[in-house]
Design a binder for these strands. Sequence first.
DNA 1: GGGTTATAATAGTCAGGGATAGTCAAAAAC
DNA 2: GTTTTTGACTATCCCTGACTATTATAACCC
Lengths: 153, 153
Amino acid sequence: MARLSDIIETFLKTLINEEEGSVEIQRNELASKFNCVPSQINYVISTRFTTDKGYYVESRRGGGGYISIKRINTESAGDYLMHIITSIGDKISQHTCEVFINNFVDYNIIKYREAMLMKAATSDKVLMDVPIDKRDDVRATILKNMLMGLTVL
Amino acid sequence: MARLSDIIETFLKTLINEEEGSVEIQRNELASKFNCVPSQINYVISTRFTTDKGYYVESRRGGGGYISIKRINTESAGDYLMHIITSIGDKISQHTCEVFINNFVDYNIIKYREAMLMKAATSDKVLMDVPIDKRDDVRATILKNMLMGLTVL
DNA sequence: GGGTTATAATAGTCAGGGATAGTCAAAAAC
DNA sequence: GTTTTTGACTATCCCTGACTATTATAACCC
């Protein structure tokens, strides 16, 4: 019962690693390789290869069309973190928060144990005593403050 | 006749033992195995597989959704951490919290960066939006949950 | 040849259906 | 009175397909 979208995601990420950061595909070709409708490729890309997750996607229609995916260069983790910090608004849901944290791990910005700490500090479970209308605010504050702490190092 | 929730609890714990610490289930499937409504699975998990009891739960909805339960590793530093966790009361001031964290670093339980994260997540600055009479409770919860996270592995 | 138009070859969008899991409060059981 | 059980309602995720948009190239006309 493996989800096809996950398989395609993994396939693309492997390709990106092999190609050192970028890959160019043809939508229909990839779709037929995985026996799915072409639009599922769009679905995978729009849910897994977003800017927030550190990817840059370009495409072109018509004859010789293509989709190219590039991993954003994260040489200076500090800059990337600052970018993320400023992009986080005043509120953030637990889910979105986890997505961010998982990405930091993917990009080797934080370690697994650090991710566990961050998730533990921003889970709904931990914020039970915070009024529900304030919960996402507190979470955003905690997350941003932890990230700020990392940029200092 | 034992209560159904207890039976399901035992079943899951047996599975976790067989699978060496973790198990992945489908909510509806498990519910139909025990002839109960799916939400009873949620009840069992939220009452028997809590962080306090040493479990870590993740899930995903939609096609191919699942619920995964992991038992927290209680070996090595885990025992010491568990001891600390139980010694922390329901409330803790920012100052006491920092003393704890500094000690963890001194005793090589956590690294410097991890300490930064923990302090960032438990500072008064970050808990501004939490009603003052709840602040020390939330801080204690966050601290304990972060420490629990470290015992997972 | 140069410009215009038709055709084929792509990719994008969006709304809907099905498959899960989550929440919450009432009812039932203990 | 507390814990367990239930079910209606909600939220989320994946997959599909019809319809649209864009691009390159071939065909056509002058």
